[in-house]
Design a protein around this nucleic acid. Sequence first.
DNA 1: TTATATTCCTAGTGTTGAAGTAGGATAAGG
DNA 2: CCTTATCCTACTTCAACACTAGGAATATAA
Lengths: 146, 146
Amino acid sequence: MLNVSYRTEYAIRALVTLAEHWEKPPVGLSRIAVQKDVSFKYLEQLMMALRKAGLVKAMRGRTGGYSLTRPPAAITLAEVLDVLEGPVQIRDCAPSDHACKFSKDCLVKYLWREMERSLVTILKNRTLADLVPGNGNKARAGVAKA
Amino acid sequence: MLNVSYRTEYAIRALVTLAEHWEKPPVGLSRIAVQKDVSFKYLEQLMMALRKAGLVKAMRGRTGGYSLTRPPAAITLAEVLDVLEGPVQIRDCAPSDHACKFSKDCLVKYLWREMERSLVTILKNRTLADLVPGNGNKARAGVAKA
DNA sequence: TTATATTCCTAGTGTTGAAGTAGGATAAGG
DNA sequence: CCTTATCCTACTTCAACACTAGGAATATAA
């Protein structure tokens, strides 16, 4: 349970590739698609979303491709996941129109909120730089031992 | 993102009701269904799953219904969620048959594992007793301020 | 200038799982 | 024996996910 979708997995593969090419010429999607085993046409859609969110920029034409708009260390996973899957929300417990009418006397919402806070904290503290192989342990200290 | 399903929400409503009736006669599903706004037939299925997992027991017949098999404080949310939605797994990154072939050089898995550990820790430390209104702050100390 | 390689955008499709329905069998108390 | 419970299986409906498809716009290389 509490899965993240393929959408996100694929996009992260692409973003890590772009992170590896930071300050180099843009990388074309056809190349990423082959290397990272992602459908080219699907990847196009994901990158469009990331571009509209301002995380990547595109250059068209013969030598075009995608680049990050900021250094890898300045792009948190919280931002990435937010673009791809929306805000972290275990459950919507707000007593609004369509949501839970039991919210007032319900303690479960505090559990969901605690879980959300925990996840967001982790995601805000990890960046694309932490996901680039060979970046040393400095950047990802505390994530895990290999 | 990272939602928990209605399945779980409904089941928790029922389990909290049973927690409130701990050491009292069993509670029938028809009553819970009406009070907690859950489809009776759907609730039946959820309770069957919980019974087979050993979290609740059923009594049939005229005065039948469901009860918890253990005190509310002895049933963690980790157990409940595990029955209803399976183990916490942000993504399956194991390099098995159907899973990711990039696992070897991929650092993303450490992020997923960290998120999972964080969630499991929270869920193991909360019990049904923490979700019963009016149980005082003792049982749910640290969950959140109202 | 022309061929080629790229991004851009919209629409459609197949499959799967969640959520809920339905109908009856089995069991037990009044 | 009748009512009210649980038990069990099968079916249905709907929406989201993971693609697929086809072309338009753009920019470089030859």
